[in-house]
């Protein structure tokens, strides 16, 4: 899941300062699950914006809406009517959603959250980074623990000298990914794998080759065919 957290309110106030009527849009997917941009956060932020404008003595009308998913143009289409009534939009979706909205409407669209990482839930209210989208998954050889996302240096062949008692040198709160990998391999009884050297990682699929795109020919083709038939 993509995680995000709300931007400092001051920053959002700054964005919307010039406008009198805005729309706050939430997304019912990842940002709802990580409690950063669902219906509830939309309500809270909208209230905060209203209270702030009252304090600042300026006029501001805030509309609220939450889409099923902001990163799909069809869902974003549903904003048409509301978008027509406002001067600007604050989106609480991840960067993908914000850009989808921005692409479809000719009014300013501002981020209400900072998109953080792809992460997993550790427990209620705590999320941790688990994947960096490197495009070439090697979890199969690292016991299901990703050194790309979870090692501070993204090392491929064991820990650096900063491992101290299983913790990373950057913080006592961060586990050394390679320690975790080792423990896991031992647990599985396949610690031989540790000996296998991984070749230097090709970072092109990770974005080094420019913006990435996935095209599923089969799906994309069927859409083209349907359109043709229509």
């Amino acid at each position: 899941m993509i995680t995000a957290e709300q931007k400092p309110l001051q920053e959002i106030f700054g964005y919307i300062a010039p406008y009198e009527k805005i729309l706050v849009v939430g997304c019912n997917e990842c940002v709802t699950v990580c409690a950063a941009g669902g219906r509830k956060e939309v309500g809270l932020l909208s209230s905060a914006l209203r209270l702030h404008s009252v304090k600042a003595g300026k006029k501001l009308e805030v509309l609220e809406h939450t889409l099923e998913r902001q990163c799909d143009p069809e869902y974003v289409d549903q904003l048409k009517e509301l978008a027509g009534q406002v001067d600007a939009i604050v989106s609480l979706a991840c960067g993908c959603g914000i850009q989808t909205v921005a692409a479809q409407y000719a009014i300013p669209v501002f981020p209400g959250v900072n998109t953080k990482f792809m992460g997993a839930s550790e427990s209620q209210g705590i999320w941790a980074e688990r994947c960096m989208g490197c495009g070439d998954c090697m979890l199969g050889v690292t016991g299901g623990i990703c050194p790309v996302a979870r090692c501070s240096k993204s090392l491929m062949n064991g820990p650096c000298g900063g491992n101290s008692s299983g913790k990373c040198e950057i913080s006592e709160d961060v586990d050394c990914a390679w320690q975790l990998i080792w423990n896991r391999l031992v647990e599985l009884g396949i610690q031989d794998r540790y000996e296998e050297l991984v070749a230097a990682k090709d970072w092109r699929p990770a974005g080094g080759g420019g913006p990435r795109k996935i095209i599923r020919e089969d799906l994309a083709a069927s859409k083209i065919i349907t359109e043709d038939m229509a």
Binding site: N28, E29, T32, V33, A35, G38, R39, S121, S123, Q124
Partner: peptide, 12 residues
């Protein structure tokens, strides 16, 4: 329709 299956209620 609104439920995002986030598990927050399950945990709370």
């Amino acid at each position: 329709v609104k439920c995002a299956v986030c598990l927050i209620c399950v945990r709370a």
